[in-house]
Amino acid sequence: MMEFTQAEALGVLATVAKTLIILVGAVLMAALMIPIERRLLGLWQDRYGPNRVGPFGSLQVVADMVKIFFKEDWIPPFADKAVFVVAPAIIMVTSLLAFAVIPFTPTWTVANLNVGVLFLLAMSSLGVYSVIFAGWASDNKYALIGAMRTAAQMISYEVFMGLSLLGVVLLAGSFNLGDIIESQRGMWNVIPQFPAFVIFFIAGCAEIHRAPFDLPEAEQELTAGYHTEYSGMKFGMFFVGEYLGIVLISCLVTVLFFGGWLGPWLPGFVWFFLKAFTFMCFFVLLRASTVRPRYDQLMAFGWKILLPIAIVNVAITGAIVVATS
């Protein structure tokens, strides 16, 4: 049996505490995104959005949460019960696991992995299971069509996401996210890797199926896609999972292209938060302004435009890195 020293024990405790704070923080942020999104949508659509519950509608999220907790947790009799229950949990778990490798400040990170970027890609790949399971277990044609769309969309856009990251990794010479941030002390990656940033952002949007890439749950055609049959807290988990995705992608953009915690005067965490929050708001702006493409347009755009650009970007970056080293 291993013996722990007091210091080691304290270290473990600190890690656990840090982990909890980050996880809870992430979930809270995701939850907060709900009223923020509704207010912002209101702002951009010349209306108010929810403004009655609490000051400026800030407690709307609490009301929504109370409501969703008290809703009947209904499992359709025709559903595959076990899979039906597991599906929403998967998206929550994979999204939260991804947060483990994100360095919010030089010291605030749960796991400082050397293969952080790969871990992220792995986690986002796992997320597709949640959707497929949900669609399959629901035994409902809308849910299944939604799930099939999601699977195709996520698998395709993962390719461009990975390719766009390669440029950043080449520049930093490391898969470690902390190293990537440190490599941007001179210049944020967004400048040398602008095409990669654009592709990553678009692919990120598609990964978490946010507007305009919300085809899997296109309500006009598919009622609610893969989560048609979900209600109560299980639906809530899908819902929070989606907002967790927004927070995650925003954090990643900050880390990979906008120098993470780097910035003058203010503490690192504040810089990180400000940058990430800007992107979260931008996600809402995208939803307020863009239209949903057709499914074939989505695939054509990915494979015929994003893929060549990403490959060219990697090639040029690689050439420059080789030339300068």
Binding site: G42, L43, W44, Q45, D46, R47, Y48, L285, L286, A288, S289, T290
Partner: peptide, 21 residues
């Protein structure tokens, strides 16, 4: 056109709200 749309939507931040309270 996409960028312009995004920009136009953003500019609605400074418009009057239609909602009657």
């Amino acid at each position: 056109s996409v960028l312009r749309t995004i920009g136009m939507t953003f500019m609605h931040s400074f418009r009057k709200r239609e909602t009657v309270l």
